[in-house]
Nucleic acid binder design. Structure first.
Length: 676
DNA sequence: AGCACGCCGACT
DNA sequence: GTCGGCGTGCTC
């Protein structure tokens, strides 16, 4: 019997409705933007006419605060704890159980990890409904594909045994350092197909559409058109839902996609992979801002699936997975790496010798770069020119050694706040804790000088075109991204991340403006620069075939050394150690809380933060008035990694307390990638 | 976000 | 007395 909601509703109004005979209570997750304290299910009465359709996981329409809203039926129960009278379930748009127990559990885990709300995660995980797709989407899976040959994996230590584990259903987890020139889509397709051959599901997530096309091509080679499905947020709604349903119903074993696919409801997940986890596109820009790598590691763990975190470069997060022993290394022998890599030359500011050629001088091309390009073009190969994007971000660095200037209290980034006091410009201040730094002294070299760092304009394609007047120049970037270029002499000017693949490999790559790339104010400046360099350099022929890379950056810098030696793991390990020392993620877990000063204050009053919590700030965000107060401010809270979960849950709880509710508008982000 | 209840000032 | 201010709390 229903505890409160009567089975047979009394009163004239609901006389025509009768509750279902068995399990008349539906626990419903309402899909409306709600304050955090309402992050819980609500109970409704199931009328007997909807009894058959109202199955766990189906979409429902219910009346909530007087309005008809969408929701998901989580479960049917006999009784409700709610003391009042339950409203009726109004409609079941479709009995398709889209929020399966597995998917629900995954969404809960993700919400918990980020201190976010379940409904927000479910909104990311389930695409909008399209009725036609429910009729047309397939239900039955085809036979498992044959197990693919995977000799190419033998180039990596433990590569063969990794695939063996995938096939045998033993969870193997690896940080994969792809060899220069590696056909990574083919390798990931092989691994995914290996899981499918064993009858299990596979999921591979890549940063962008171009990568997805390459991966899709590699997968259809092994699985045929019907054996793989690509999920991408930019698909038309009907097609998107059709493909998603095919996955949900278990009709397709291998699923690939861009970040929205991290939640794909793959049946019996046996293998998951994220390619190039350092690409910021893997960070989902909606609450609670989940990251592909985090979600897939969590899913692999929960499902007992194998996992690959792969790239040409390596993030500090991937390094942590390896160093903590959670994953193992999947890398080639050093000698094989050297044999596959191009020859890399670094040219610093001081040893820049401009080319004699007047046009090359005009383009400010050093002679080494000019000669490398000319030799490659002469050999009939295309040359890649990587030009950093435009953009400007104010930040400060040591005026002498160029080390990023950091706060002595909390190691946050120093910047010039702008504005003046009594005609004197305000001194540098920490962007985290707000402490002013009037007497900077560089911890590395002792210098007292500060200089502004700005991401500047790159050289243009026209300038380079003049330096090589008889060679066609093509550009790949924001406007138009090229997928591939033929093995002919050409200059390919590309912004980072938009480099086309060259048939037979580029003869040379020129990585311009390395200094500005390295000097970017983000925490990940060096890691990002190196990732972009490796991605471009990996498209160049091996040194033995004449492949050369010239990077315009000081060879004494660690990221530059890592590129020259082709040792991404070494740099990632240093980076991780440094983050540990500075108290940054992933060594520690950091939360950024934005909101009005009152909301922040009430959160600080009420939050039961973990014992290792260190609170920085708040610092004003955006415009500051005469008294130094802003409409919104940011608070940083950091804790030991082990207390990440506790931090997420305490921030979740603190947002729900009465005092914070009025001021509301608190935005909580965990390990925000763009915070610094 | 909107809507209902609730405890003090100006009015018939 | 009683109308109505919006401050506070709730949404099955």
């Amino acid at each position: 019997m229903a505890g409160a909601g009567p089975r047979r509703p009394k009163g004239a109004k609901s006389a025509e409705r009768t509750a279902a005979a068995s399990r008349p209570v539906a626990r419903v997750l309402v899909d409306v933007p709600l304050p955090v304290h309402l992050d819980r299910p609500f109970d409704y009465q199931v009328p007997d006419r909807l009894d058959a359709d109202a199955v766990p996981g189906c979409r429902v329409r219910v009346r909530f605060r007087g309005k008809l809203v969408d929701g998901y039926l989580l479960e049917r129960t006999e009784t409700s704890e709610f003391p009042g009278t339950l409203s009726w379930l109004e409609r079941v748009p479709s009995p398709e159980p889209v929020l399966t127990p597995d998917l629900l559990e995954m969404c809960r885990a993700v919400a918990t990890r980020y201190g976010g709300m379940l409904a927000d995660v479910v909104r990311l995980a389930i695409p909008p409904r399209h009725a036609g797709a429910e009729k047309s989407a397939p239900r039955e899976p085809g036979p498992p594909p044959p197990r693919p040959a995977a000799q190419a994996w033998a180039r990596y230590q433990h590569g063969t045994s990794f695939l063996e584990a995938v096939h045998a259903g033993r969870p193997a987890r690896a940080v994969w350092q792809a060899l220069p020139g590696e056909d990574w889509p083919a390798r990931l397709a092989e691994a995914a197909t290996t899981a499918a051959a064993a009858g299990r599901g596979a999921l591979v997530v890549v940063p962008d559409h171009r990568d997805l096309q390459r991966l899709h091509h590699a997968c259809t080679e092994l699985l045929g058109e019907a054996g793989v499905v690509a999920l991408a947020a930019e698909l038309a709604p009907a097609e998107r839902y059709h493909r998603w349903l095919a996955v949900l119903r278990g009709a397709v074993r291998v699923v690939i996609g861009t970040r929205a696919a991290m939640f794909a409801p793959v049946r019996d997940l046996g293998f998951a992979a994220v390619w190039d986890d350092g690409d910021e596109l893997h960070s989902y820009p909606q609450v609670p801002y989940p990251h592909t790598r985090d979600v897939l590691t969590q899913r692999a763990h929960a499902a007992g699936a194998s996992l690959i975190v792969g790239a040409f470069a390596r993030t500090a997060e991937a390094a942590l997975l390896a160093e903590s022993g959670w994953a193992h290394e999947l890398a080639a022998h050093r000698s094989d790496v050297r044999a596959a890599a191009p020859r890399v030359t670094a040219i610093g500011e001081d040893d820049t010798q401009l080319a004699r050629d007047p046009a090359a001088r005009a383009a400010r091309l050093p002679s080494v770069a000019f000669e490398a390009a000319r030799a490659a073009l002469g050999a009939g190969a295309p040359v890649l020119v990587q030009v950093p994007r435009r953009g400007y971000v104010p930040a400060l660095a040591c005026g002498d050694c160029r080390e990023r200037a950091r706060c002595r209290r909390c190691a946050g980034p120093l910047a010039l706040p702008g504005g003046s006091e009594g005609g004197v410009p305000k001194p540098a201040a920490c962007r985290w804790c707000g402490a002013a730094e009037a007497a900077f002294r560089c911890p590395s070299c002792g210098s007292r000088r500060l200089r502004a760092v700005a991401v500047g304009a790159g050289r243009t394609a026209e300038e380079l075109g003049r330096a090589f007047s008889n060679v066609p120049v093509r550009t790949s970037g924001a406007g138009e991204v090229l997928a591939s270029v033929p093995a002919k002499p050409a200059l390919i000017v590309s912004t980072p991340g938009a480099e086309p693949v060259a048939e037979g490999g580029y003869g040379a790559a020129l990585l311009l403006d390395g200094r500005t790339l390295l000097g970017r104010p983000e925490l990940r400046a060096a890691e990002t620069a190196l990732r972009l360099w490796f991605a471009a350099a990996a498209l160049v022929r091996p040194a033995r075939d004449g492949g050369r890379v010239v990077v315009m950056a000081d060879s004494s810098l660690q990221p530059v050394q890592a590129l020259v030696r082709w040792d991404p793991a070494w740099f990632a390990s240093l980076e991780l150690a440094e983050r540990d020392q500075l108290g940054f993620p992933p060594a520690r877990r950091v939360a950024a809380v934005d909101g009005t000063p009152e909301a922040i204050e009430s959160l600080l009053d009420s939050a039961d933060l973990p014992t290792t919590a260190e609170v920085l700030g708040p610092v004003p965000l955006g415009e500051v008035d005469a008294d130094g107060n802003a409409e919104r401010e940011r608070l940083i809270v950091r804790v030991d990694r082990a207390e990440g979960r506790a931090l997420a849950s305490s921030l979740h709880a603190a947002q729900a307390v009465r005092a914070a509710r009025k001021a509301a508008e608190l935005q909580v982000r965990l390990d925000p990638p763009d915070m610094l």
